[in-house]
Amino acid sequence: MFETVLLVMLFLLAIAILGGLYRAIKGPSMADRVIALDLISIMMIALIGVVSIYMETDAFLEAILLLGILAFIGAVAFGKYIERGVIIERKRDD
């Protein structure tokens, strides 16, 4: 029973990721794609959580935290790239 609930929820999350993938492919502007990829990575965090309940292992918990951090850094880097064309700004002396 509990496994069935988890399997159905995994299926729903997979559908949600497919929706994000649709927007990432079709999205008219670059920021649409960044938002869709951010949504996909956040959904992947949730998916790994449900998978680790389903497989009854705690080996994936570090992966959850790392994916959260990487999603944020990736979104900020893409935002700065869209806005200014550079990611790391260097100060010039002259």
């Binding site: 979104a75 900020v76 806005e83």
Partner: peptide, 11 residues
């Protein structure tokens, strides 16, 4: 997540 959304929407 809200901070990332704010940065992307501002850009």
């Amino acid at each position: 997540a809200p901070v990332a959304a704010m940065i992307i929407s501002r850009s």
